[in-house]
């Protein structure tokens, strides 16, 4: 279990605003709707500062267009619940890592047909490997990377040699 995830769980457990964390579970990655921003590791903290609710998020990739949607969805969900005034803060350091995805998030990704970024599946540089990712359809490890870059910034494209199907892999970064 990674340190960043444990720290995030602790912030949520010890938060003075547990209901807001629960509300924000409704905000999903617009491109991978099985993942909430909590699962994805984008939601860093929810706190109150001088009468304002401050939601802090860590962007995934520098140019990920989903971040804009996520910001406006946070405003909408909290706005509809009458929460305010609201400030959404972007936090760049430490940089987001695929290791921050929650264990539940990894399970949901696999179920959804996307191979999650498992620790075992990084190569020596800590990048996406060129083979050996478990196929989310048949479970075989006999797979190869077709492309480093997939349908969104966070995914690489693989093919399973056992069942012959192509699949997305949530990139190790």
């Amino acid at each position: 279990m990674n340190r960043a995830y444990i720290d995030r769980c602790r912030r949520r457990e010890q938060s003075a605003l547990p209901a807001l964390w629960d509300l924000l579970d409704r905000v999903r990655d617009p491109e991978i709707p099985v993942l909430s921003i909590w699962d994805l590791g984008v939601l860093h903290d929810v706190a109150e500062e001088q009468g304002r609710v401050v939601v802090t998020i860590t962007p995934t990739y520098s140019g990920c267009p989903a971040m804009e949607t996520i910001r406006s969805d946070i405003e909408q969900v909290l706005g509809e619940a009458g929460v305010g005034p609201l400030e959404i803060r972007t936090r760049l350091a430490p940089a987001w890592s695929s290791a921050w995805i929650s264990p539940e998030g990894c399970a949901r990704l696999r179920e959804y047909g996307i191979a999650p970024p498992e620790q075992c599946a990084a190569d020596a540089d800590g990048l996406t490997p060129d083979a050996g990712v478990l196929c989310p359809r048949c479970g075989s490890a006999d797979s190869r990377r077709v492309s480093e870059f997939g349908s969104t910034a966070c995914k690489a494209l693989f093919r399973c040699n056992a069942c012959g199907e192509p699949f997305d892999y949530f990139k190790t970064i």
């Binding site: 990739y61 520098s62 140019g63 990920c64 267009p65 492309s147 480093e148 870059f149 997939g150 349908s151 910034a153 494209l157």
Partner: peptide, 9 residues
């Protein structure tokens, strides 16, 4: 797709 991804970065 790779070009689109790198450009976006």
């Amino acid at each position: 797709i790779a070009c689109g991804n790198v450009a976006l970065d």
